[in-house]
Nucleic acid binder design. Structure first.
Length: 560
DNA sequence: TTAGGGTTAG
């Protein structure tokens, strides 16, 4: 017998199973699983019958170790010796299987349990949510007889984590209607859903809800961190900084969210400064997300040397192993700054197999720097890894188009057709002062203000031309006449959204435009000049990042 | 004696 256990157990009451269990559990909590299991072996050798509590401690240890085989053995022994005598034993079993990523076994235990409580349900609901199966989660949730706050929260955060923000908000509303109060975790899930919707209208409501529930960002680190992320994603990085400054407790989530927010808004120096402050002036350890933020700051601003420094220090100084996502940032950084060959070499040094992100970053860089040779290498891998993502094919097609290789364009177009892929329609949207969302599609004339929008655009083009605006015809990847190119360019959705906003907003207010695809060069130039002639600040988010246009300049410094 | 937690890349 273990000498420590002997010292504790022998003098007191040798045959008491609870005493043994306490020792087993103690070991398990300390993470000394081998000792815990060895103690269980001793216990059996002494012919002492384990109690339910003993098994619950052992099952929990198996879950933490992710040891499915051992877990199965204890499952069988539990059942043989104690049956499902208490609900919590079954619940611990469910939890063990969930932690071992064996959700079907967890479900089987659930189905066979003679008695269940709300914890059994919630464990399984959360497990389904974690693997992205919100259908099963919702089905289970609806059949749960009495739903408590934690169960509701599992649904709200589950939808938020699975990129279904609208559903998250719906469940939150249903929860409130059923008279159950939200706590800090629920509200954080709600804020995360609002962040994904990326509109100030939702942001305002999220803040109201947090206030109403009594959760101020200054005292609640989870709420504060969620708000930083939300404001950044809604285009209001200033407010994100305000929240950050107001917080009394900060952790790695707080810093990572702020660094990412600054990075996506092109404020690279501030992001890096914050990163350095975090690692030198606080006790908080950077994690893998923090490094994504720091590297993204570099890649969005073309800071090659600093990016290399951060990348090298990741493992050497901080012991954080670079993942494929960090390589993606580095490939993006090298590629964007024109170091395409170097980016390709870096991919070859990766110890893990590169994923679509890595090759996609390289292909995107080839698009910017017009390099069909490397683009073909990247595309070959990418089409294998992500055969159904149309954006990849469009990127390659655009590389060919820039090179004037219309045969290449046709080949890619044929490939798209063969695969039956549909083009993602471009859409831009703005939220007016009443909180109403207005969507704009290419050349779409269905908006009630369509005529006025077209007039405004015409007027704007005239004013910009005086400043030297010439449509950038290379931004149209089709083999059509120059005039047709001009007509296509002027109907780009962000330009329609801009004209609409100029017609409907106050003189001094900021215009925020969101777009689902990457902005083209022509629109970028257009926005820059428009901010000059109108005196407006235009904040524009495309699928990659934010651009802040002010007095004829962009926060990205034309590097994007 | 068991449940829900905010941040990530092209």
């Amino acid at each position: 017998m273990d000498p420590y256990a002997r010292r504790v157990i022998e003098p007191v009451q040798f045959r008491n199973p609870f005493l043994w269990t306490a020792v087993i559990r103690g070991y398990a909590i300390e993470g000394k699983f081998d000792e815990a299991i060895a103690m269980y072996g001793c216990m059996r050798k002494e012919e002492i019958t384990p109690v339910s509590f003993t098994f619950s401690a052992l099952l929990k240890a198996c879950g933490t170790m992710k040891d499915l085989n051992l877990g199965r053995q204890f499952h069988a022994q539990t059942f043989r010796l104690r049956g499902f005598c208490f609900v919590y034993v079954g619940n611990t079993m469910i939890d063990m299987y969930v932690k071992c990523e064996s959700i079907d076994c967890a479900r089987k235990v659930f189905d066979e349990m003679p008695e269940r409580d709300v914890i059994s349900w919630t464990e399984l609901i959360a497990a389904y949510a974690r693997v992205g199966n919100m259908e099963c989660a919702a089905e289970l949730f609806e059949s749960l007889p009495t739903k408590d706050m934690v169960a509701w929260t599992a649904m709200v955060t589950g939808f938020a984590q699975n990129a279904k923000p609208q559903e998250a908000l719906e469940y939150f509303d249903r929860m409130e209607k059923s008279g159950i109060r939200a706590d800090e975790v629920t509200v954080a899930g709600y804020i995360s859903a609002c962040a994904q919707l990326g509109a100030s209208k939702y942001a305002d409501r999220a803040v109201q809800i947090a206030q109403k529930s009594g959760y101020s960002p200054s005292d609640h680190v989870v709420i504060g961190s969620a708000l930083i992320d939300m404001y950044s994603k809604c285009g209001n990085v200033e407010e994100a900084v305000n929240v950050f400054m107001s917080m009394n407790n900060k952790n790695v989530f707080t810093y990572s969210s702020m660094i990412l927010g600054l990075a996506t808004h092109g404020r690279a120096q501030e992001a890096l400064h914050l990163f350095h402050y975090m690692v030198t002036q606080t006790e908080i350890k950077p994690n893998t997300v923090t490094f994504v933020g720091a590297l993204m700051a570099c890649s969005h601003s073309g800071l090659v040397d600093q990016g290399r420094q951060v990348f090298d220090s990741m493992y050497q100084t901080f012991g954080v192993q670079p993942t494929r996502d960090h390589y993606t940032c580095m490939v993006d950084l090298l590629g964007r700054t024109g170091r395409l060959q170097e980016a390709l070499e870096l991919i070859k040094t990766m110890s893990v197999e590169p994923h679509g992100g890595v090759w996609g970053a390289l292909l995107g860089a080839c698009r910017i720097h017009n390099n069909p040779e490397i683009a073909e290498i990247a595309a070959e891998h990418l089409f294998e890894l992500e055969p159904d993502i149309i954006g990849n094919y469009i990127l390659l097609s655009n590389v060919y188009a820039s090179a004037g290789d219309w045969g290449g364009v046709l080949r890619v177009r044929k490939l798209i057709k063969e695969k039956g892929l549909k083009k993602t329609p471009a859409v831009s949207w703005v939220v007016d002062k009443n909180g109403q969302m207005h969507k704009f599609f290419p050349g779409n004339l269905n908006h009630p203000m369509s005529n006025k929008i077209q007039d405004k655009l015409e007027e704007l083009v005239e004013r910009l031309t005086v400043l030297g605006y010439q449509p950038d015809l290379s931004s149209v990847p089709y083999d059509v006449s120059d005039n047709a190119k001009r007509l296509i360019l002027i109907q780009h959705t962000e330009k329609l959204a801009l004209a609409f906003s100029l017609l409907t907003t106050n003189r001094d207010s900021t215009i925020t435009i969101m777009k689902n695809l990457r902005m083209c060069l022509d629109c970028h130039k257009f926005m820059r000049l428009a901010s000059e002639v109108t005196g407006k600040v235009i904040i524009m988010r495309d699928n990659m990042r934010f651009h802040h246009f002010r007095s004829g300049d962009c926060s990205c410094g034309d590097f994007w």
